[in-house]
Design a protein around this nucleic acid. Structure first.
Lengths: 142, 142
DNA sequence: TATTAATTGACAATATTGGTTAGATATATT
DNA sequence: AATATATCTAACCAATATTGTCAATTAATA
């Protein structure tokens, strides 16, 4: 069980947007260069995140993308779901004669969801800032 | 995040072997018919599980597969790992300039592993028996 | 009006998944 | 020894998903 490249790119981009929260909009090109992500691919990705309500955008000069919510209201699981779809362990079991397995795996699925929903983008940002030895740009987000 | 067909088949097969534990060896054909799994595909799968030390086999007439361990010593995570490889959220981040994300995701990865390692095949068997309203063939496994 | 940058959709290359086929090897029975 | 059973091994194929590109369109700003 590994993360798709798409999801890895998404986490990188969201972290970058998180670190810039309440500053300027960040263009796809800037994001792509900063994290070595193929531009057009990142473009579609950011649209997925927008459709999921995690980012907003502005066109034209000085346009770009920005978080639609404060980082502490964006759970890691939200990013996973927006990009790769929801955690789903039971699909394909209900239909067959394996409903026993479906109900059993539903429990595990729920626990995994909770793991992903416990940590937020804000925590990732704090972690990243700490490692970069940077101070927080907005003290009220500590 | 969903389960591969391969993994679904594996869970089905392991459940079946768990229900037959300490009885006869079960042939690939029997398993395949019981759970509607393409035979040759299941064959490769059971070999993966054998390489991982979860099943044993015997050739020739009345041969087939059997669990290599009692069901309560086989964790669901062991099946996942044997078939799909280990849970790995950090791969691809260490190499880049995203080690911040790698260390952050390592935590989450570990928690997911623990979820999968908490439940055992024995619990799945009990669950299945309960739903089938069958009694346990061996009281000392309750 | 010109420039910037998001949006949309079609498309191509590549990798993975799911599945098949054929043959070799081991075991048990007769 | 011969035969039937059933695992093992490896090569192979088709379908699908993933990853990535390209061109045209739309919106916002100066």
């Amino acid at each position: 069980m590994h993360l798709s490249a798409k999801l890895k790119y998404a986490v990188c981009a969201m972290l970058e947007l998180g670190l810039q929260y309440r500053q300027e909009f960040v263009s796809v090109t800037t994001l792509a260069e900063k994290r070595s992500i193929p531009g057009p691919f990142l473009e579609k990705l950011l649209l997925d995140l927008k459709k999921a309500g995690l980012t907003t955008s502005r066109r034209g000069p000085d346009g770009g993308y920005s978080l639609a919510l404060p980082p502490d209201e964006i759970r890691i699981g939200d990013i996973f779901t927006a990009v790769d779809g929801p955690v789903n362990f039971t699909e394909g079991f209900e239909t067959q004669d394996s409903s026993e397995i479906a109900t059993f795996l539903a429990d595990i699925e729920q626990e995994v969801r909770e793991v992903l929903n416990t940590k937020t983008l804000h925590e990732l940002c704090c972690h990243a800032r700490k490692l970069k030895q940077l101070s927080h740009p907005h003290p009220f987000f500590i």
